[in-house]
Amino acid sequence: MVRLEFRRDRILLRWGEQKYEWVIEPRYWRNPAIGVFLLAIIPLFILPYPNILTMLTSANLYAAIAIPLGLQMIGTARVNFGPQLYLGLGGYTSALLNLHLGWSPIPTLGATILVCAAVALLLSPTTFIAKGLYFSLITLILPLTFLDVTFLYGDIFRGEVGLVGMSPLFNFGKVKWNYLGYFYFSLLLMLLYLFVSDKISRSRFGVTLAAINENEDVARMMGVDVTKYKVFYYVFPSILTGIVAWFIVHTFRTFAGITYLPLDFMIKILIIVIIGGRAFVYGAVPGAYLIAVVEDSLRGLGPINYFVFPLVLIGAILILPRGEGLWGLYHKRHHRDYFPTLHVRR
């Protein structure tokens, strides 16, 4: 006879002489495996609804763009208003190479990484030359300029229509299984980015990152080679963003600059970072899921969506704890954790 007992901090399951217990004390909820498990089983419930599955795939991709952006914002101590520049660069690189030179997805991935790294390296001096608003303005202009270029050279970039028909990353034969594949692949990409960012922020590099974010002049006076770190934290997240574009090209098999390069897409990503929690790497995940769900739910409202969506976002920014967002609600009693929590006993 199975007996279930609910206690204040745990659930007990008795089966004859056997006893199983599951501790539900809030501090045990912080186990990331629970979050990964929940995300992994979602498709089992929504398999018959491909539109929801696509929405969640978009949420994963939004998070995969927002996670490196969060890392970049902390590491360079600057707000980048144009992370989608690398989305455009990466997407067009892999799409053009695939379409015109017949490169398969693996070589296009290499080319995407190289192109994004080269451009980011070229632009990285802006992180220490331009401060505050100037850096934001420079980064804001670049993707918009690139968008103009895609229209100007419409014969190469196909302007508003974009490039279509790139070779797929995988094909399971059935559309439903392909959608499922896209979801899991995007989830994998997002979790990989989360894992890498988490590892960085919990290491000695995370401590340095936090110091630069707090006061780069003082950090420099304490021996931190701020320039070197800034270049790295500008180039590395840019490459990660480029890889997301490569994924989009080889899964959705269509890529148009007009979708990813304009201002509204960038604002969406920035809002994900802010709503999720600017000070937390993990914040991008709930932020991205919230934005994707709200955006999809409001789409049915028609043109009024253009007013309601920003209002919902402004409301969320006002209500949520400043700088700590959704993740801050969850992690309320702890310090900002973009640097590791260090403990030492006497």
Binding site: A210, E214, G223, V224, H335, P340, V344
Partner: peptide, 21 residues
């Protein structure tokens, strides 16, 4: 004083330890 206001004292000093040498 120019401390790292959002960091604990231990973390702030650890930055010096890591990068001072």
């Amino acid at each position: 004083p120019q401390p790292f206001y959002a960091m604990t004292t231990l973390t702030g000093v650890a930055v010096s330890v890591i990068h001072g040498k």
